[in-house]
């Protein structure tokens, strides 16, 4: 594993834990898109089915189990425990417009027409757009709590670092996976606008708010 991949995985973990911690501490999931969190739970579930079929390393297995557990815990907090604080009216992105085309694409473009491989491909495609309901919610309300922006930054950083990881792996290992690379590029691009706001506003101590 190279340094980019290592930092990326921990940035991803940090994002997940920041979100869980924020919801737990404030006893509220205001401003958080439950739909994005359900999509991430689906992403992890469909991607990590290989937990049942193959063992890669203790690190790999532990991280996969932690990601899955945390994402289900987050969904539970939003839709069950702190449901009263969930801002469903603003979480109005139509997820079927993501899931259906992504499902179709996974069936059409994959490395191998086998169930596990198609589900893995589906999870890669779905992850690249799973944050859209959250970004849509922020654009609708015009603002985000600072802690939510830290969450988004860690999540975006994770994907950006994976791009460096793939460049590294291509040069030093001759490894590349076109499906992951293209989806990773799309995913990173979706965060660019947010990165700009994060650097120009949040890092200067201002709240992230969008012009009306």
């Amino acid at each position: 594993m190279n340094i980019f991949r290592g930092i990326a995985d921990f940035s991803h973990l940090a994002a997940i834990i920041i979100l869980l911690h924020k919801i737990w501490k404030s006893r509220s999931c205001a401003g958080i898109s439950g739909k994005s969190q359900i999509l991430f739970a689906i992403v992890f579930t469909t991607r990590y089915l290989d937990l049942l079929t193959s063992f890669i390393s203790l690190y790999n297995t532990s991280m996969k189990v932690i990601y899955i557990s945390c994402s289900y815990a987050t969904v539970y907090l939003i839709y069950m425990k702190f449901r009263a604080t969930y801002d469903g009216n603003h979480d109005s992105f139509r997820v079927e417009f993501l899931v259906v085309p992504v499902g179709g694409l996974a069936v059409l473009i994959n490395h191998d027409f086998a169930l596990l491989e198609i589900l893995w491909t589906f999870s890669i495609y779905l992850e690249s757009v799973a944050i859209l309901p959250q970004l849509f919610m922020i654009s609708k309300t015009g603002e985000a709590e600072t802690i939510t922006t830290h969450y988004l930054f860690c999540l975006g950083l994770y994907r950006a670092l994976y791009l460096f990881n793939w460049i590294w792996r291509f040069y030093f290992e001759g490894f590349f996976d076109m499906i992951a690379i293209v989806a990773g590029l799309v995913q990173t691009v979706l965060y660019c606008d947010f990165f700009y706001l994060y650097v120009t506003k949040v890092l200067k101590g201002k709240k992230l708010s969008l012009p009306a």
Partner: peptide, 10 residues
Amino acid sequence: EFNIYGHDEL
């Protein structure tokens, strides 16, 4: 080299 049925990346 791709398409292994355990994916080493997360």
